[in-house]
Design a protein around this nucleic acid. Structure first.
Lengths: 166, 166
DNA sequence: GATTGACCTGTTACAGTATCACATACCATA
DNA sequence: TATGGTATGTGATACTGTAACAGGTCAATC
């Protein structure tokens, strides 16, 4: 039941969890995916992914670039953009359109175009499975339109921020 | 039956139609909405909406700004952004995240958070009703997450561009 | 008529996001 | 070692968006 497990993983972005382990496991999965696909997870790319994995937030390209530059990698915008684009193309990260920012993919390897849930208070971003959403979009499109990719992002308040506000 | 009529209107963005009339009617509706809401459709704002209504494409803020400047309005970015933000807030235009661009709302006055269909060939943008999509997103979110706004955008090929490619 | 206050328009300056173009370095393999 | 593909570094530049402030317009009120 992929939906249930993905849902659990998604929920964890908004729940207390052992994040060090969460990040390490996801990184290990990403490495396996890269090897299997014959892609090279070079130092810049790997470090970029690690930076994204440090939190469940989406980071701007220049936020990533600052981190990379501080660690001795290049300090020009293309350094960050190339690494981020690679990760996105490889399915190891996602771009969050609404924030013009990037987040690590929390279950790499599985083909998926997730829906993103963005908490407007703590800025955490979670992925949830989106098959039903895509089906709804396809159903809403006029007959001749061929839907190829769907971007769906929701802004709201996560459980803990709601609790804090109340 | 709002769904059916909205669907027909959406389909028209990808279909041959009397666009002058389409734009004029939408502008008239927008004016009525603005009056009803006590909002002022000033010259800059009105002209901005007209520019968006000239096509079913989404225009970048600077594209709009160039047009405004050429017609004697201010030539600084805030001029365009303020007009566009006003139109979006008033429900007379929408922002298309994926393109960092703006499109006129084709059925102003009705509360709606539409799904956008973007043709990657001709760049036309259509709105389609999205109630089912929002429901699917809400259903996919973990229990504690309160969804407030949903952005859904689909990229694909419209019927006529598919025909042209074949 | 003068004053007030809300709103609108305009400007400067700048912050953040993204790409182009080119040079160089690395690495696998023949 | 020669070669070709891939990755990285660098500078420049384009595109997108916002903050802060000055002045103008207009209606309501004094």
């Amino acid at each position: 039941m992929p939906t249930a497990s993905a849902g659990a993983a998604a929920a964890s972005a908004f729940a207390a969890h052992d994040h060090a382990r969460c990040a390490a496991e996801t990184l290990a999965q990403a490495e396996a995916v890269a090897v299997a696909a014959g892609l090279r997870l070079t130092p810049v790319r790997r470090r970029t992914l690690e930076i994204l994995l440090e939190s469940h937030r989406a980071l701007g390209a220049y936020e990533v670039l600052d981190r990379l530059a501080a660690e001795g990698f290049g300090r020009q915008p293309p350094v960050a953009y190339r690494a981020l684009d690679f990760l996105v193309d490889a399915g190891l990260a996602h771009r969050v359109q609404r924030l013009n920012a990037f987040a690590a993919c929390m279950h790499p390897g599985r083909a998926h175009q997730p829906v993103f849930l963005i908490c407007r208070s703590c800025n955490a971003v979670a992925e949830v499975p989106a098959a039903a959403v895509h089906a709804a979009v396809a159903a809403a499109a006029p007959p001749g339109f061929a839907v190829e990719r769907v971007t769906a992002e929701a802004v709201g308040l996560c459980a803990s921020c709601r609790g804090a506000a109340a």
